[in-house]
Design a protein around this nucleic acid. Sequence first.
DNA 1: ATTGTTTTCCTAGGGCCCCTAGGTTAAAAC
DNA 2: GTTTTAACCTAGGGGCCCTAGGAAAACAAT
Lengths: 197, 197
Amino acid sequence: MVRAGLTAERVTVAGAELADDVGLDHVTMSQVARRLGVKDASLYTHVRGLEDLRGRIALLAADEKTIRIAEATAGRAGKDALVAFANAWREYAHQHPGRYMATQTPIQIDPELAAEAPGPRRAVELTYSMLRGYGLAEPDLTDAVRLLRSTFHGFVALEAAGGFAHERSPQQSWIRALDALHTLLEHWPPFREGDSS
Amino acid sequence: MVRAGLTAERVTVAGAELADDVGLDHVTMSQVARRLGVKDASLYTHVRGLEDLRGRIALLAADEKTIRIAEATAGRAGKDALVAFANAWREYAHQHPGRYMATQTPIQIDPELAAEAPGPRRAVELTYSMLRGYGLAEPDLTDAVRLLRSTFHGFVALEAAGGFAHERSPQQSWIRALDALHTLLEHWPPFREGDSS
DNA sequence: ATTGTTTTCCTAGGGCCCCTAGGTTAAAAC
DNA sequence: GTTTTAACCTAGGGGCCCTAGGAAAACAAT
């Protein structure tokens, strides 16, 4: 019997494809094995188990998303960069819903594995450098990064969950949201004493 | 043998408690049955299955969250209302992580069931009325509502997924985000022809 | 080429879970 | 009190996760 040539990476990719096809929580060891033409027990040589696989899918997605964003924002600045960044984010989520959802799982990824995945760290760096043009300084910079990430993620998550039932197209709201965020970054409110919880 | 007095609602609540305790994707029919002192097969009289149960937990969470927000914003206006709204949202997510996560599942809830759940609809109404003071008109109003919901949801989702690893406390970023959104709403950018995707 | 070593993939099987079918018996309706 | 309804049960099939241990392919070394 010829070997299938499995790898942790090949198993992860198969899981990611399956996640995009049938939804993340229908990704099972058995299905992934079937897709690879292998018995489920064979996967455990390459992957610790289902949780580990999901963690690997999440890291794969983070890396891929980061690469897309880096390509999209290369050579751009200001609002151009903001829009390119945001659109790359959203398009990745649309194209790879299962992978994207994997990134939302409460943190339980093998730290050793996460350490060698450049995606998450690089994503934050990209966001910071995209904001360079707006002239923000710490801690406002961190706050702005978090606000942007929250809005981008929240929008696509609500979109995916069917949260935008109103007749107005999400696309239009998205464009306006980016407009709004741009002007917000240009007029970032100064910190004032006495702000309460 | 005395009856346990089950109800679709009691099953849902048990599932919701379990979700908050052990995480949504460890909510199983068997565990819920065990928590209610009943065999798993007995649940199927009240609930169609696991998917149905998850949908019911999601609707329960939506209703509860809406009530919290309504209480928190009652009698408030302007930034006061915005902050109260947002904090109620975030605190609900913190207190009921499992329930909250249930609301994120891609839409597959029984429409008949959803129709009689006031939560989601009322939540949108509350958001609209909270924004009344900012003087926005459609379609800006819808866009603003969507932006706010995206940011609130995105923030708590990233927070829950461990996305804010930086040293700065999420709480501080949250306060600044609300400041920023408030000023944004006060200076909502006018629509200009020629905005591109 | 042969032998030994490593690693891949297998079969077997235990345990948990989802869900259905069909039977009892408690509660409600009359 | 009898009948009807509905709650809860036992039994069981099939799927999934994962471990243990075996067979054989690929690799190393002579």
